[in-house]
Design a protein around this nucleic acid. Structure first.
Length: 461
RNA sequence: GGCGCGGUGGCGGAGUGGCUACGCAGCGGCCUGCAAAGCCGUGUACACCGGUUCAAAUCCGGUCCGCGCCUCCA
């Protein structure tokens, strides 16, 4: 199946041609670990997780390399440590672990490599040295700055030219810059700030250089796909291109740039003062991670997404339907085909059209519910499971999902089973008053009963 | 000011010159002891104003509204 992506670099949809189909390489900008990930941080993680799954399906599981960095040196982290008194190491370790746990709860596979910035300082110093030697960077007052004028194609990704950028600049230009457009590769640290010895004195890296160095280490000077949020197009990705291209003697850095759209919450930009700042950590206390994942994937990745709690509730209800269909087909063993249904792969291959892929999942679900023939049911069940898998959905046991694993308080499973047993006896005796009373009691506690042929299934709402 | 993105039925959300998207909710029916689940049916939507066209939500021009970025801070 031919894959097409909207390439930010070309501002158009293009056919995807990997450099090496036996080693397709993708890099996605990861978190700065100073606080819990919010839902806006989760969108690229989930979206590019689907991309990773699609590429693994298309090119083979062992033929895709996915790198996502961990930024563990940054002024936001330094500031957070100064405010809270917690050490930088404690903050970054704790936050990184929370990030991995939260993203795991959203069904995101771990990337093949998750390099940390602080473990690549020597590589950054080497690359900065190369840039200076080649005339693409210069030292000034303990800083090393990238010489933007030395890279003709600067602005190619974001579609700006230098004059516009300078004219529109809102920020005062630092005095040590030769040119207002220049950006920092290395900056000096005070004794109380984290720093590393370098040819330019004790200091720390600028924001952009880490991605250039870590992508080079794991993926080489030129690779296939670089992803991230649209907010990173400028300056971060523009600067990565400039650094990497110039450090590699002009070799192309990345062939396909993919950017996910902005995210709002409850109709407004997320902010702590508005009370709509949703961390994944908090949302997971209220909703299953899979429902959050589906809520994110119901919108195409390049569209703006207004994330709402009612949207997660909708997604949860939809997942209930899928798991009900799977549970109701529990009498047959899934006949899992070698590949997901063509319609699903076709949708995802068209610039990751997850909403369209999900529509096909609904179609499979209906066909499964309608099917009577055991062989057909088994095949449809297998197709639905595999189609869900490429989206990172429907991987749980239906009973675990429907009975609400991890629920707290209320009736235990055994309590419910006992009441359901009593009700079955009452129904057998045509004692519908008792039968209905038990059902009402359970319903009051959020337990829904479904009478089937000779059995009664239950689920938590 | 510059660059860019978006406005689709009650809600979410694809699509894109003519053919049902899909889902949730609602309504009607089938099934059921009654429900639940499921199935079937049901909605003449594409911000506004012009233009092009046999035909536009889809192309062109303009207007309004919302959002983002514009360099050491995402």
């Amino acid at each position: 199946m031919t894959i097409h992506f909207y390439n930010t670099l070309k501002r158009t949809k293009e056919t995807f041609k990997p450099i090496d189909a036996t080693r397709v390489r993708m890099y996605v900008c990861g978190p700065t670990v100073y606080d819990y990930a919010h839902i806006g941080n989760a969108r690229p993680v989930v979206v590019f997780d689907v991309l990773y799954r699609l590429l693994r399906e298309t090119y083979g599981e062992d033929h895709v390399v996915y790198v996502r960095n961990i930024t563990d040196v940054d002024d936001k982290i330094i500031n957070r440590a100064a405010e809270s008194g917690e050490t930088i190491g404690a903050i970054t370790q704790r936050t990184e672990q929370a990030f991995l746990a939260d993203m795991g709860a959203l069904g995101a596979m771990p990337p093949d490599h998750q390099p940390r910035a602080t473990e690549h300082i020597p590589g950054m110093i080497t690359m900065i040295g190369k840039l200076i030697a080649a005339g693409h960077a210069y030292e000034a007052e303990g800083h090393v700055l990238f010489n933007v004028a030395s890279y003709r194609a600067y602005g190619e990704l974001s579609g700006r030219n230098r004059d516009e950028m300078i004219a529109g600049a809102r920020v005062e230009v630092a005095p040590y810059k030769n040119d207002p457009a220049d950006f920092v590769l290395w900056k000096p640290s005070t004794p109380d700030q984290p720093g590393w010895e370098s040819p330019w004195g004790r200091g720390r890296p600028g924001w952009h250089i880490e991605c250039s160095v870590m992508s080079e280490k794991h993926l080489g000077p030129t690779f296939d796909i670089h992803g991230g949020g649209q907010d990173l197009i400028f300056p971060h990705h523009e600067n990565e291109i400039a650094q990497s291209t110039c450090a590699h003697g002009g070799a192309k850095f990345v062939n396909y740039w993919l950017h996910n759209g902005y995210l709002m919450a409850e109709g407004e930009k997320m902010s702590k003062s508005l009370g709509n700042f949703y961390t994944v950590h908090d949302l997971l206390k209220e909703f299953p991670g899979e429902a959050i994942r589906l809520a994110l994937l119901k919108t195409h990745y390049r569209q703006p997404l207004d994330f709402r709690k009612v949207g997660i509730a909708d997604a949860k209800k939809e997942l209930d339907e899928f798991y009900l269909a799977l549970r109701n087909a529990g009498d047959v063993k899934a006949d899992v085909p070698d590949h997901p249904p063509v319609a699903v792969i076709a949708a995802l291959s068209d610039d990751l059209n997850t909403p369209k892929a999900i529509a096909h999942l609904f179609e499979l679900k209906t066909r499964l519910n309608v099917a009577r023939d055991a062989g057909e049911k088994a095949l449809l069940k297998g197709e639905l499971l595999l189609a869900g898998d490429v989206l990172g959905l429907l991987g749980q046991s239906p009973d675990v999902w429907l009975r609400g694993a991890g629920h707290v308080g209320g009736l235990s499973d055994a309590d419910i089973d006992a009441l359901v047993g009593q009700r079955i006896q009452a129904r057998a005796a045509k004692d519908f008053a008792t039968s209905d009373r038990i059902r009402d009691e359970l319903a009051a506690q959020g337990i829904i009963l479904e009478d089937g042929a000779g059995t009664t299934a239950w689920r938590r709402q």
